[in-house]
Simulated scan of single mutants.
Amino acid sequence: MSYRVCLVCMGNICRSPMAEIVLRQTLDDHGLAERVSVDSAGTGGWHAGGPMDDRAARMLARHGYDGSSHRARQFARDWFGERDLVLAMDEENLRALRHMAPPGADVRLFRSFDPEAPEGAEVPDPYYGGVQGFEQVLVQVRAAAEGLAKKLSDELR
């Protein structure tokens, strides 16, 4: 693997694992699966070791993705040295990541890769809402994943 991406949300049970699974598939569709590795984590550790939220897993399965093997993890400061790009789902997690990032770390919002998203667009946390929130997350992460895959395709070929 030549390029490493980590997707980060609060607890690593909804948004970031959905984004990880979608991005992996999108990269595979673009012929980049052998060149780019993807993982995910949360800025908080309270769900560490646990599975993805059932609603997130069901939403992914409904659209042909498999999230069954996901286990939540907490992002650690020393991971910056092992990742080329760290992508936050929202401003709160972006601030937390930038606070711990060493100089020169590439830390951005994931939706910054969606050409249709306004500047500063976030992937909202669906945890306290209904199924519509998870559907919205899936739409948003698909668009951002496609944009990132196109960018990496241009850069890594």
Rank of each mutant, 00 (worst) to 15 (best):
A19W: 05
E20L: 07
V22C: 01
T26G: 03
D28H: 07
D29E: 15
G31F: 08
G31M: 06
G31I: 08
E34W: 02
R35K: 08
V36K: 00
V36F: 01
V36W: 03
V38E: 10
V38R: 13
S40D: 10
A41H: 05
G42Y: 10
T43F: 02
G44T: 05
G44W: 01
G45N: 04
H47F: 03
A48E: 06
A48V: 13
A48Y: 03
G49C: 14
G49K: 11
G49P: 15
G50N: 12
G50R: 14
M52W: 06
D53H: 15
D53E: 15
D53T: 00
D54Q: 14
D54R: 14
D54C: 00
R55P: 03
R55N: 07
A56Q: 12
A57S: 14
R62E: 02
R62I: 00
H63A: 13
H63L: 08
Y65I: 00
Y65R: 04
D66F: 01
D66G: 03
G67W: 09
G67D: 13
G67E: 13
G67A: 00
S68G: 15
S69G: 12
R71G: 01
R71A: 02
R71E: 00
R71S: 01
R73I: 06
Q74F: 01
Q74S: 03
F75Y: 08
F75A: 05
A76L: 08
R77H: 12
D78Q: 11
W79S: 09
F80R: 03
D84S: 08
D84P: 07
D84F: 09
D84R: 09
L87I: 05
L87K: 01
A88I: 07
A88V: 06
D90M: 10
E91R: 11
E91K: 07
E92K: 03
E92M: 02
E92Q: 05
A96S: 12
A96N: 14
A96F: 02
L97K: 12
L97G: 04
R98Y: 11
M100E: 05
M100Y: 01
M100C: 04
P102A: 07
P102S: 02
P103K: 14
G104K: 14
G104W: 15
A105C: 10
A105Y: 11
A105S: 14
D106N: 15
R108T: 03
R108A: 10
R108M: 03
L109Q: 04
F110P: 02
R111N: 01
R111G: 00
R111Y: 04
D114Y: 09
D114C: 09
P118S: 11
P118M: 12
P118Y: 08
E119H: 13
A121C: 02
A121F: 04
A121D: 09
D125I: 10
